[in-house]
Simulated assay, not measured.
Amino acid sequence: MQTTYKILNKAIEGLLVLIFSLLVLDVVWQVVSRYVVGQSSSFTEEFARFALIWLTVLGAAYINGQKEGHLSMDFLLSKLSADKQIRRNRVIQLLMAVFALVIMVIGGGNLVYTTLKLGQLSPALQLPLGYVYAIVPICGLLIIFFSIYHIKITFNANQK
């Protein structure tokens, strides 16, 4: 599981860098085409929107895998004993996995299925919107994996 965790983290990091780089190039091209060429490209705004969606959702899954990256208020947590802190973290990871399953995997999967079934296309790129929304259930599965990984790590740490 540790090897899978490391491979997933590296793959997500690479994908995030790629998406961010494409987003920067897209926005630069939009500015250049608007002010230098005098006519803006029709696809750049739509691509930037889709790239930002992917960047945000994938970034949330990545940060969930890092565990320390999420913004949290731990004032009350620091007042608990070490055992209660571990139990609280397990409950939080379990709730995050349930949320990811119900909202992201099941709900996002339904959204992808519906938009693909209806044949909805984006206006400028003529891309099926189901492909754009597919990142939601994929990241839901990633969050579930990372939550299970963090729960397993805490169980292994307690047994030592």
Rank of each mutant, 00 (worst) to 15 (best):
M1T: 01
T3K: 04
T4M: 08
Y5C: 09
K6R: 06
A11Y: 01
A11Q: 01
A11W: 00
G14A: 02
L15M: 12
V17M: 12
L18F: 12
L18Q: 01
F20G: 11
L22S: 06
L25Y: 09
L25R: 02
Q30L: 10
V31Q: 01
V32Q: 00
V32W: 05
S33V: 07
S33N: 08
Y35D: 13
V36L: 14
G38K: 10
G38I: 13
Q39P: 05
F47H: 15
A48G: 15
R49F: 09
F50C: 07
L52T: 15
I53R: 00
W54F: 11
V57S: 03
G59C: 03
A61Q: 09
A61I: 06
Y62G: 05
I63N: 02
K67R: 07
G69F: 03
H70Q: 04
L71V: 09
M73G: 03
D74V: 00
F75R: 02
K84C: 00
Q85N: 04
R90G: 05
V91K: 05
V91R: 06
V91P: 03
I92C: 03
Q93W: 00
L95Y: 08
A97T: 02
F99W: 05
A100L: 07
L101A: 15
M104P: 05
V105C: 12
V105L: 12
V105N: 06
I106M: 12
G109L: 13
G109S: 13
N110W: 15
V112W: 14
V112N: 08
Y113I: 06
S122D: 11
S122L: 10
L125S: 03
L127F: 15
P128W: 05
P128E: 11
L129E: 01
V132H: 05
V136N: 14
V136Y: 14
L141N: 10
I143D: 03
I143R: 11
I143Y: 11
I144V: 11
I144F: 07
F145Q: 06
F145T: 11
F145R: 12
F146W: 09
S147V: 13
H150V: 14
K152T: 12
I153N: 04
T154N: 05
F155Q: 10
A157S: 15
N158Y: 04
K160N: 14
